[in-house]
Every structure is written in C-alpha cells, then in structure tokens.
C-alpha cells in the first residue's frame, strides 16, 4: 500500500520533470519565434531539471528494472550460479553508489562553504545540486532492496529493461484496435442486414 503510493509519487515526479523540460524548451521556441523575446532563466532551469531527472531516475530505474545490461551469459548459468553472480554484481553496484555518495558529500560541503548562487536563479548552488547526494543515497537503498530480494529467492537478476518487450505492447495495442474495428464492421454489416 505505502510502497505503491511511493512508486506512484516517484512516477509522477519523474514524469513531471520530463514534461516540464519539454514544455520549457517548447516555450522558449514559442517566445522567440512568436513574441521575439526569451526566458532568461529557462536554459539553466532546463538543465537543472535534466540533472534531477537522471540522478533521481537512476534509482527508480533499478526498482522497476528500466536499465539495460548484458544478461545473456548469466542467464545460461544454473540458477544458483546466476544468483551468486547477481549478488556479487549488486555488491559492486553498492561500492559504486557508496564511492559516488561519498564524493558528492565532500563536493556539496565545499560548495556550501563557499556559498555561491546559480547563474540565473537566486538559489544556492549546493541546494540545486543536492540531488547528487539524494540520488546516490536512493541508489544504495534500491540496491539493498534488490539484494534482499535475491537472497529471499524472489528474483534472480536485475530484471533488465527489454526494449523488444516494450515494443510488443505496441503490437498488442494494434491487434486490439484491429479486432475492435472488425467487430464494429460486423455489427454494422449485421445492422444493415436487419434493415433489408
């Protein structure tokens, strides 16, 4: 229940970031082409949104299996060996997130000490960049969760994103559409039959 709510919130947040970036850049074009003016903070804002999108999105991607990887080889292994390598890999992912979290912390502390603002918006730089720490901390949480799942035999691998599978959804949709059209046509034909 709570987990679902959190996932929903994360999804809404990330979708909003993507939409906001798109609309900001779109608005800039409209302003420039239509009104001969610009939005002086738009560029900095768009890029900042992009950073939050990627850095927060990385951990969400682990949770829902949105990342891609080469899992053809480990999938050939017996189940236990697969699980073992997945655990080692998760351990290494934790090392990665930990190192970058540590580096981000030092970096942000330094920026906080100097206390400079963003170029175009009156926001402290360290606050705008706080997503570095948040993002890598979230990654650690998601990897711990994933590791726990593997230990509990709930999953064997990272559950990689499959572009092929995603494209298949388009196929399913189209088939449903055709089916519906066929039914409608049949209905119309039979209507016409009734009338005659």
């Amino acid at each position: 229940m709570v987990r679902n709510l959190i996932t929903k919130l994360e999804e809404t947040f990330l979708s909003l970031l993507l939409v906001a970036m798109t609309l900001l850049v779109f608005a800039e074009v409209v302003m420039r082409f239509g009104f001969n003016s610009g939005i002086h903070w738009a560029q900095e804002m768009t890029l900042l949104l992009a950073a939050w999108f990627v850095l927060y999105g990385a951990s969400y991607g682990i949770k829902v299996g949105a990342h891609i990887g080469v899992d053809v080889f480990v999938k050939l292994l017996p189940k236990n060996a697969h699980r073992f390598f997945t655990l080692v890999a998760i351990g290494l992912c934790l090392v990665y997130s930990g190192l970058l979290l540590y580096g981000s912390w030092i970096y942000l502390s330094k920026m906080k000490m100097i206390g400079i603002e963003l170029e175009d918006m009156p926001i402290q730089k360290w606050m705008a960049m706080s997503i570095l720490v948040i993002g890598f901390a979230m990654l650690i949480i998601r990897f711990l969760e994933l590791g726990w799942k593997v230990l509990k035999h709930q999953t064997e691998g990272f559950g990689m994103h499959d572009e092929a599978e995603e494209s298949m959804e388009i196929a399913k949709e189209l088939k449903a559409m055709e089916e519906q059209e066929r039914l409608e046509k049949e209905r119309k034909d039979s209507d016409r039959g009734d009338r005659s």
Partner: peptide
C-alpha cells in the same frame, strides 16, 4: 572522488544538446 562527482554532475547538467534524446 569529489571531482568524480563534480564530473558526474557536469555530465548530467551541462549538455543541452543531449536533451534532444528524451524529447
């Protein structure tokens, strides 16, 4: 490591052209 994080932030926030990809 701090400069690695700095580099990482630069990679996510200083490449305007890359935004064409999500769009």
């Amino acid at each position: 490591l701090a400069s690695v994080s700095l580099k990482f932030f630069e990679a996510t926030s200083e490449h305007y052209t890359l935004l064409a990809i999500p769009f």
